[in-house]
């Protein structure tokens, strides 16, 4: 049932051939609860997702802002665990064996699960790549190298602080795509500034042929359109989490129209990202 090549490579190749940008929505696993999350996940490809990034909640999400922190807390209340996240991926793969899935999470829950066991289970469930913000290239032996041997990609992050000296270290052994962090700060903290990105993207392009996706601070279809022109893909997270949150009242009750509204919100941003 697994594709011979990584779904991520296949998808980026197909997008490139079609001259399209990748729209990559992010959703926190288990948010707003364990029943609704898989409905959102299943609806994302139709809402325009070319690749899906699933957030693995962590108690101490140091790189994330309030929107994703709130989503984490809610997901824990709903009972999310690492095995349940892999169950969601397995469930998604029953009806979609094409859309690449990237798991984004901090290292400790993976380390606690057991790195080799996690990689094997994630591979079997249908995961294609990982983003682990607290694993810089200096700690490659921990996770990236064993992941690579299973044809699972660990996405490198390039940030505004990644200077000329640092860039080769980050690009070395990178596979799949590069995650370009548009601001120095936490997720959702500020709006990305397209003009400042041009320089960073230009520097990356000189040294790498990998697709570049931009994340942190993309909130509207207009921003997605502008940012999309700069890069090969756009990642949108906090804005979607905020949209979900708007359907939850102060007592934690979830409104009936959440799934449809969030998916139509995602559809709108995806149109922007796709240049529409």
């Amino acid at each position: 049932m697994n594709n011979p090549i990584n779904r991520l490579e296949a998808r980026f190749a197909a997008l490139k051939a079609a001259g399209r940008k990748a729209f990559i929505p992010f959703a926190t696993a288990g948010y707003p609860n364990l029943d609704i999350f898989p409905q959102l996940l299943a609806g994302l490809p139709k809402a325009g997702a070319d690749i899906i990034e699933i957030g693995m909640p962590f108690s101490d999400p140091m790189a994330d802002g309030p929107a994703i922190q709130t989503a984490n807390i809610q997901a824990f209340k709903a009972g999310i665990t690492v095995p349940k996240i892999l169950d969601f991926v397995r469930g998604f793969r029953k009806t979609d064996n094409e859309t690449p899935i990237v798991l984004m999470g901090y290292y400790n829950p993976i380390y606690s699960y057991g790195v080799m066991r996690f990689l094997d289970d994630a591979k079997k469930a249908g995961v294609d790549a990982f983003i682990i913000p607290d694993l810089p290239p200096e700690e490659d032996a921990e996770f990236r190298i064993p992941a690579d041997s299973r044809d699972l990609f660990v996405t490198r992050l390039v940030t505004p602080t990644t200077d000329e000296n640092r860039l080769p270290t980050v690009l070395k052994d990178a596979k799949g795509f590069l995650y370009c962090v548009s601001i120095t700060g936490i997720t959702g903290a500020a709006e990305a500034n397209a003009s400042k990105l041009t320089d960073l993207i230009g520097r990356i392009r000189q040294q790498s042929d990998l697709p570049i996706a931009i994340g942190f601070g993309v909130n509207t279809p207009e921003q997605a359109r502008t940012i999309g022109q700069e890069a090969d893909g756009v990642i949108v997270g906090s804005a979607i989490m905020n949209r979900i949150a708007s359907h939850i009242d102060t007592n934690g009750n979830i409104g009936a129209g959440l799934v449809d509204d969030v998916l139509s919100f995602v559809t709108n941003i995806s149109r922007g990202a796709h240049g529409g």
Binding site: M62, Y107, P133, T159, T161, T162, V181
Partner: peptide
């Protein structure tokens, strides 16, 4: 074990 932003 820190974010790439902090590594430099």
């Amino acid at each position: 074990f820190v974010a790439e932003t902090l590594m430099p």
